[in-house]
């Protein structure tokens, strides 16, 4: 009983967060300027980091948190580099 309650709560949280990712994806597809698309990517990656951590709790795997950490790190560097290219008019 308790186990079912736990997995239900976590699955609800994951689905709500996935809905957020989809909304950001829509903005990324229609965004009129490149900066809009970068904003969408930025928040999509933050939400995705949390989704990976939620999966770590759902499957009870400690090692998935490392995946979340590395994903967050790479996303941060990606956004910084894209912003820098945008500033120098490379895109």
């Amino acid at each position: 009983m308790n186990e079912i309650f736990r997995t239900t709560i976590i699955q609800i949280s994951i689905w709500v967060a996935v809905a957020g990712v989809i909304l950001a994806l829509i903005r990324g597809l229609i965004g009129p300027t490149p900066a809009d698309r970068v904003v969408a990517i930025d928040s999509m990656t933050t939400v995705a980091t949390v989704i990976i951590a939620l999966f770590a709790h759902l499957f009870k795997r400690f090692i998935y948190l490392d995946v979340a950490l590395v994903f967050g790190l790479l996303a941060f560097i990606t956004v910084l580099i894209i912003a820098r290219c945008l500033e120098r008019r490379m895109i």
């Binding site: 957020g20 900066a35 928040s43 939620l54």
Partner: peptide, 22 residues
């Protein structure tokens, strides 16, 4: 905290979709 957090994770992208400029 999980439920509150996922609600805010939903509201942020909703704001990204609705607001008028970058």
């Amino acid at each position: 905290f999980l439920i509150i957090g996922s609600l805010f994770l939903f509201l942020g992208p909703l704001g990204i979709l609705r607001f008028p400029d970058v």
